[in-house]
Amino acid sequence: MIPTLLNLLEVAIWSGIAAVGFAILFNIPRKAIITVFLLALGAGFIKFVLLDFHINIILASLTAASFVGLVSMPLAHRIHLPPVVYSIPAVIPMIPGYFAYETVLSIMSFIFLEVDVPKRTALMQDIFSNGFTMLFILISLTIGVSLPLLLLRKNTVKKIKR
């Protein structure tokens, strides 16, 4: 139990670091960096714990992104920055980049390399499962991040009362 938890925590910390790297690439204000790190750490921890319980990656991403969305709302009032500035970098480590290029790689192998019929069928399965997993993770990340605004039917966080 404890080693698993420590392992999950290590992965979560590294996803926090990954988010900070991207945050600096996107030139976020300096006072938001710690926030991004903590948000991404929390989101990563939630996601990997859920994955450890064999919950589907799409559902896990949705939960983690909703965590980011819900927490970023009170934070926006506190540090006076619009929520996108730290909620988008915080979910960047969860962007399904791997599924995205794996889809394209499968398509390329299907077209250029493979001639064997059973292997081509397996590649077709890869193309569909990876491609649609990517799409659904993206949709769930978007919904999770904008959840407070969608639920409260407001178009800016400023108008939501604390």
Binding site: V11, S15, A18, G21, F22, G44, P93
Partner: peptide, 18 residues
């Protein structure tokens, strides 16, 4: 240079995640 180092750390972070 800060950007280069920071993004490289996120590359390493992704590698740990995988």
């Amino acid at each position: 240079y800060i950007t280069l180092i920071a993004v490289s750390f996120s590359g390493a972070g992704f590698c740990n995640i995988f």
